[in-house]
Design a protein around this nucleic acid. Structure first.
Lengths: 338, 338
DNA sequence: GTCTGGCACTCTTCACATCCGAGTGCCAGC
DNA sequence: GCTGGCACTCGGATGTGAAGAGTGCCAGAC
C-alpha cells in the first residue's frame, strides 16, 4: 500500500501533467505544490510509484508522466467530481431549454458537451426498448404499402415502410391500428413482443398475412442493433490532442465514424452511475490512447440512453466528469418535461 | 494566351504534384512526360506560367506547385472527367441497392463516396421544397396535441408536434386530414402554401385556430433553413491532408461541424452540372485550402439535393469528379425506384 | 525567333558535432 | 526517514558543412 504522501505526489503529477502537457520533474513538483518535503524525497517517492507502475518516464532524463494505471488510481481514489458552478448550470439549462424537438435536444446536448469539456461529445438517442410507447400509427400509402410510425414518450419517432403481401382495406387498417394501440400504448417497448403475439388471430384469413408482416416489422424495429442511433460533435477538439498528430488522431476519427464501435463502447459502460474507461481499458484498439467518460441519462429514475465524451487520457477528469454528469441530469429533466 | 506546350507543362505539373505531393522541377518533368523539349525550355515555360500566376515556388530553390488559378485552368481546360470503370460502376450499384430506407441510402452514399474518393463526403437529404408530397398524416396524441407527419416521394419523412389552441375532435381531424391530402398529395411542396391558404374557411369557427396552427407548422417545416439536413463521413481521410497538420485540419473540422456552412457551400454551387470550387474560391475561410466538388442528384431529371466531397486542393480532380458524378447518378436511380 | 547546353548561384535538407540543462539515482550525513 | 550534494545521462537546441535539387541566365545552334 502506498503511503499518503506518495498518493499526494501522484495526484500532483497528474494535475501538473494535465495542465502543462509536459513530463513533470521532482523540482517543479515541490515548487508548485506544498508537499513539505524536498525534491530528493519526492524523487524517492517517484521511484516507488514508477516501480508500482503508476507513472513512467518517456526517456531517462525526463520527468514522469502518469500511466493508465496512474490515472485509474487518480480517478478512483484521489479526485472527486468537480461540480459545475451556478452560472454554468444556469447556462446549461438555458441552452437546453431552447430545444424544440428530440433531434434538437440531442444536437444541443452534443454541442454543449463538446464546448464544456472541449472534447469530442457522443450522445445516444433514447433507446426504444427502454422507453414506453406513446402511439403506434399506420398509414396507407398505396393499396399494398403501409407506413408504420412509432412514437415514444421520450419524443423519439421511428418510421418503417411495410410492403404487404395482399391489399389491405381501410377498415382493416383502422381495426389493426385501434387494436395495436389499445394493447401497447403506455406500455414499455420491451413488453411489446408478447403483447401482440396473438393479434393475427383476431383478423380474417385474408388479412392475416399483412398483420403478421406489420408486426414483424414492428418487432424488427426494436432489435437492439438497428434501433440505436447517436450523434457526435466537437471533433475539431481532436486537434488539441497532442504532438504526434496523424498517428493518434486517425484511429480515433475512424472509431468515431463506426457507430457500431461507439455503441459498443457506451454499451459496455456500466448501466448506472458514471463510467470512466482509461486508455487500454477500452476494448477497441484505436481508442487505446483515449479515455471515455460516460453516464446514463433518462427522464425518470431509469436510464434510457447514454452520453459521454472521448478525449485524451491526459484529460481533466474531475472537470470532465462534472460536466458530463451535469449535462446528463439536465437532459433527463428536459425529456421528462416534454 | 498560353501556347499549347505551356498548357501541357501546366497539366504535367498538376498531375505530378497531385501524385507525389512534392514540388516538381523541370528535370523531373521532362523525364516523366515526353514533352519533346529540354529541361531548359521547360524552365522558360515555367517562368512564364509563374508570371501568369498559374504556378508558384514555395522557396527559391524548389520546384513549382500549382496555384488555385492553375488548378482552375487544369479543371476547366486541361482535364476531363475520368469515368468509372465497369467493375466500379457495378460495385456502386450493388452497394446502394442494399439500402432499406432513405436514411440508409444517404448513409451508404456517404460511405461510398468517402471510400471511392478517399476524401470527406457530404450528402444532402433530398430537399423538401423540391420534392412532391406523397402523404400528409395527422395523429392525435392528446386532446390538444397533434403530430404532423410529412412523407415525400423521395422517401423522406418529417414529423412535427403541434400544440393546438383548443381540443380538436376526431371527426374534425379526419376531415382536415382528408382535405389536406386531397389538395396537396402528388403536388410539389413548393406549391403547398397557396394550395392550403383558404383551408381554414372550410371549418367551424372553434376549429379554425387549430387548423391555422397546423398549417403554419406545415409551412414552417418547408422553410429552407430548417428543412435541410445532411450527413458527412470519411473525416478520417483528413489525416492524409498534408504535412502541416493541425493548422490545416482544424478549420476544416470546424467547418464540417457547422451544417449551416456546409449547406451554404452546397447551395452556392450551381444548380445543374458539376461544380468545383478550388481553394480561395470557397467563401468560407476555413476551407481556403480545400476544394469542393459537388453535383445535384435527383430521382427524375431535376435535382432534389446535392452531394459532394471536400478534399485538399491538391486532389485528383478527374478521378474525384468521375466518382462524384457516378455516385450521384446511381443515387438518383435508387430514389426513382423506391 | 526559339530551343539548348552549360554554368554559377541559391536555398533546403541532412548528418554530425557540440553544448546546455533538466532530471535522475545514489550516497553520506543528520 | 529526510536532506543536500554530486556525478551521470540523455534529449533538445544550435551550429557547421557537404550534398543535391532546382533555378536563372547567357551564348550559341538551328
Amino acid at each position: 500500500m502506498l503511503s499518503e504522501r506518495r498518493l499526494q505526489v501522484l495526484r500532483a503529477i497528474v494535475q501538473d501533467y494535465v495542465g502543462t502537457e509536459e513530463p513533470v520533474g521532482s523540482k517543479a513538483l515541490t515548487e508548485r505544490h506544498s508537499l513539505g518535503v524536498s525534491p530528493a524525497t519526492v524523487r524517492n517517492d517517484m521511484a516507488a510509484l514508477e516501480d508500482e507502475g503508476y507513472i513512467a518516464q518517456p526517456h531517462t532524463s525526463a520527468g514522469r508522466i502518469p500511466t493508465d494505471k496512474g490515472y485509474r488510481l487518480f480517478v478512483d481514489k484521489l479526485a472527486g467530481v468537480k461540480p459545475m458552478t451556478g452560472p454554468e448550470r444556469r447556462a446549461i439549462q438555458n441552452f437546453l431549454d431552447g430545444a424544440v424537438d428530440l433531434d434538437d435536444v440531442v444536437a444541443r446536448t452534443v454541442r454543449l458537451l463538446a464546448q464544456l469539456t472541449r472534447q469530442v461529445a457522443v450522445v445516444q438517442y433514447p433507446s426504444l426498448t427502454r422507453s414506453t410507447v406513446r402511439h403506434v400509427e399506420l398509414l396507407s400509402l398505396a393499396p399494398a404499402r403501409l407506413m408504420l410510425v412509432l412514437i415514444t414518450d421520450t419524443g423519439r419517432v421511428e418510421q418503417r415502410m411495410v410492403d404487404c403481401p395482399a391489399p389491405f382495406g381501410e377498415t382493416s387498417l383502422a381495426d389493426l391500428r385501434a387494436r395495436l394501440n389499445s394493447r401497447v400504448a403506455g406500455r414499455r417497448f420491451a413488453d411489446v413482443p408478447h403483447l401482440v403475439e396473438d393479434l393475427p388471430d383476431a383478423f380474417e384469413t385474408e388479412d392475416r398475412g399483412t398483420v403478421t408482416t406489420v408486426l414483424s416489422t414492428l418487432l424488427e424495429t426494436l432489435v437492439e442493433e438497428n434501433e440505436e442511433r447517436l450523434m457526435i460533435g466537437g471533433t475539431a477538439n481532436l486537434t488539441r490532442f497532442g504532438h504526434d498528430f496523424p498517428l493518434t488522431i486517425r484511429p480515433v476519427l475512424e472509431a468515431l465514424e463506426e457507430q457500431v464501435v461507439l455503441l459498443k463502447l457506451l454499451g459496455e459502460a456500466g448501466d448506472s452511475g458514471m463510467t470512466v474507461r482509461i486508455g487500454h481499458e477500452n476494448a477497441y484498439e484505436g481508442l487505446n490512447s483515449t479515455s471515455v467518460v460516460s453516464v446514463g441519462y433518462g427522464s425518470g429514475g431509469e436510464a434510457v440512453a447514454k452520453l459521454g465524451v472521448v478525449g485524451p487520457t491526459r484529460m481533466d477528469y474531475p472537470g470532465t466528469m462534472g460536466a458530463v454528469r451535469a449535462v446528463a441530469r439536465y437532459v433527463g429533466q428536459i425529456l421528462a418535461e416534454s
